[in-house]
Amino acid sequence: PREAYIVTIEKGKPGQTVTWYQLRADHPKPDSLISEHPTAQEAMDAKKRYED
């Protein structure tokens, strides 16, 4: 089974940042970016789909 994890990042100019959620996995390479999402819920949904 595949495993993934969610990383929170800040995008934008200082003082005007927006939080994004990255879905990452250690396949095919360590810390590979799988997808980016504007909400934590979307990231969790993507994580479930990826791991299923």
Rank of each mutant, 00 (worst) to 15 (best):
A43K: 00
K29C: 14
I9E: 04
E3F: 15
Q41I: 11
G12Q: 05
E10P: 05
I9H: 04
Q16K: 13
E42M: 07
S35C: 05
A43V: 05
R2F: 12
L33D: 01
I34W: 02
S32H: 15
E51G: 06
A40Y: 15
G15S: 06
P14G: 09
S35A: 02
K48G: 06
E3A: 14
H27D: 09
I9M: 07
R24D: 02
T19C: 08
K13R: 13
D31M: 11
S35G: 03
A4P: 11
P1I: 14
L23R: 00
G12V: 05
D45A: 13
K29L: 14
I9A: 05
D31P: 07
G12K: 04
R2T: 10
V18C: 10
E36W: 06
R2E: 06
M44N: 10
M44P: 00
G15V: 03
Y50P: 00
K29E: 14
V18R: 08
A4I: 10
T17W: 11
D26T: 10
E10Y: 08
P14L: 10
G15W: 05
R2L: 12
P38V: 10
Y21L: 01
P14I: 10
E36H: 02
L33Q: 03
A46V: 02
P1F: 14
K13Q: 14
Y5V: 05
S32V: 13
G15E: 06
D52P: 06
A40P: 08
W20N: 03
S32K: 12
T19R: 10
T39A: 03
H37K: 01
P30V: 12
P38F: 07
R49D: 08
A46D: 02
A40I: 15
L33I: 13
H37L: 02
T17H: 07
K48P: 00
T19H: 07
L33S: 02
P38S: 10
P38D: 06
I6A: 00
I34R: 02
E42G: 08
S35H: 01
D26I: 07
R49Y: 08
Q41C: 10
A4E: 01
P14A: 12
K13A: 13
K48F: 09
Y5F: 10
D31Q: 10
E51F: 06
T8V: 13
A25Y: 04
K48H: 10
D45I: 13
D26L: 12
P14K: 10
K48V: 10
Y21F: 09
K29F: 14
W20R: 05
D26W: 08
P28H: 13
E42R: 04
K47E: 02
K13E: 15
Q22G: 02
K48S: 09
Q41W: 11
Y50D: 01
K47P: 00
L33F: 11
T39L: 03
